[in-house]
Each structure stands twice: as C-alpha cells, then as structure tokens.
Amino acid sequence: MDLLTSLLATAFLAGGVLAFAALGEVLAERVGVVNLGVEGLMAMGAVTGVAAVTAVPSPAFGFLASLAVGAALGIAFASATVFLRANQVLCGLALTLIGTGLSATVGRGYSGMPSPAVFERVEIPLLSKIPVLGPALFSQNILVYLIYIVLPVALHYLMFRTRHGLNLRAVGENPAAADSAGIPVGLIRFAYVVAGSALSAGAGAYLTLAFVPSWSDGVVAGRGWIAVALVIFAGYRPIPVVLSALFFGFVTALGFVGQARGWPVGAAVLSMMPYLGTIALIIVPVLAWQKVRRLMAAPASLGEPYHRDLR
C-alpha cells in the first residue's frame, strides 16, 4: 500500500470511534439535551462488547449488547434530565464517573485480553477496486461502512428532510413552541437521548471489537470528550461531524506515520498535531466568517430543561 492509502485506511479506522460517539451526541444535543456522559458510555460499551463476545463469540452480538447497555444507561440519564428536569451537566458528569468506574470494575477479568471475536474486514465488490479510496474505505469492517456511509446519510435525511426531523429540531430550538404545536416534547427528547446514548456506547464496542481490539482500563482515554467537542465544532450536523472525526483520525495517523518514516519532527509535536489541527481547521473559520458562525450555532434551548407549567 502506498503512503496515502495506508494513511487514509488508518484515518478511517481511528476516526470511526469519534464519529460514532459524536453522532450519538448530535442526536441528544439536537433535541436540546447536553449529554456529557459520552466518555462513561463508551467505557461501558467497550467492556460490554468484550464481555459479550467472551460469552457468545459473535461480534454482532457483542455490538448489540453494547447498544443495549448504552440504552439502559441512557434511560436512566434521560429520565433524570428530561422527566425529572435535573441539571444536565451534573447528570452527564455523573454518568461519566459511573461509566468509567463501573467499566473498570466489571472489566478486571478481561483486562488486556484480546477480544475472542472481532468484526472482520468485508470488501465491497467493485468499490474496493477504486484506487486509493477503495482499499482505504471500502475494504474495512462493517462498522466503518455504518459509521461513514449509512448513519450520516440516514441521520441527515431524518433531521433535515423529513417532517419528523423538523419536529425534533423544533424541540431543541424552542420546546414551548413545539409543545403548542402538539409535538410531544418530553417523549422526543427521551427517545433521542436514549438512542444517542446507545450509539455512544456502540463507539466503545467499535474500539474493542474492531479497532484495538482488546479491553483495558482507560482504553477510551478521553475520546468521549473529544467527541463532545467535535459536535460543537461541526455545528451539530451529522455529516460535518463525521468529516471532522475523519480529519482528526487522519492527523492522528499522520503522527504515527511521521515517526515511522523518521520525519525530523519531535514525537511530542507529532502527538500534538490532532489538537493543533482541530484548532486550525475548525475554530479559525468560525472566528473568521460571520455566516459560518450562524450556521454552526447550537440549538437555542440546548441544556435547558423544559417545564410546561413554568411558562
């Protein structure tokens, strides 16, 4: 494989974790709920994935189990934040603490053990023959296709091309107006927060079942927070979120390739590049152009619990 192809292949693989988790966060934030529990959800998803495939050696089973655990935690989080109207930031932090702590406890027996079953590479006929992009994108595991092709397109269509999408965005922008229009605010918020939590946990399973592939305490290593940040940078839109995650993965891969090729740049600088790159590529345009800033704005009611009776 030539340099560009191998770089891109690693970028798709590495960026997938962030893209997956960030897509989950987009769902929650679009309906007006900040979920800072992504880090904890990913940790739980990661350990669940390994634990599940240890019991039943099927990666799909492990992945679904992770989604289920993520959804269960999401139900707890959404009940507190949507129905009981608790502070979203505090609940999210609590979820992160619970998730990282609990996963470390549950995962003790699986620490360092390679996953017994992982998602294997599936080549897509014809498409995988395209030069550069073929081997980089179209001969990966099935989750990569889900993350980069199926999910962003489906979510984009859902959010911006359907009436239901209009409703869910209205819930995030102005829940009172949505409520007056007969949209079930609480139910929509609850459903999307739970779905988003499941996706974030799925990102953890992607780590342990496709990318690394083994569990160890701290395997998520702060990527949940980067995912939360990516959502903000990418203007709460599914396709830009995936692209910025890919960019992040690309720059990370560049760091390793740079070291392998002996580029005359310090290892510390190379490991710093993803963060420098994020600043350069994402913050600078927002600061520079007014129009971009409006496009990238957060949902107006983000972080605010909705009280029908307090209006």
Binding site: S216, T252, A260, A267
Partner: peptide
C-alpha cells in the same frame, strides 16, 4: 525504527504504531 507512544499500556496506540511501522517496510 522506533515509535514512541507515551504509554506502557495503550493497545490502541500500539496497534496504530505497529501498523505504521509495517506500512513503512518493517
């Protein structure tokens, strides 16, 4: 050729580093 990953235990980074080394002919 060495790659420094700043950890004794980071399967994800070690995996990527190993891949990069092999891609580079090791």
């Amino acid at each position: 050729q060495t790659i420094v990953i700043n950890s004794w235990f980071d399967p994800q980074a070690a995996t990527q580093a190993g891949t990069a080394l092999i891609d580079n002919g090791c």
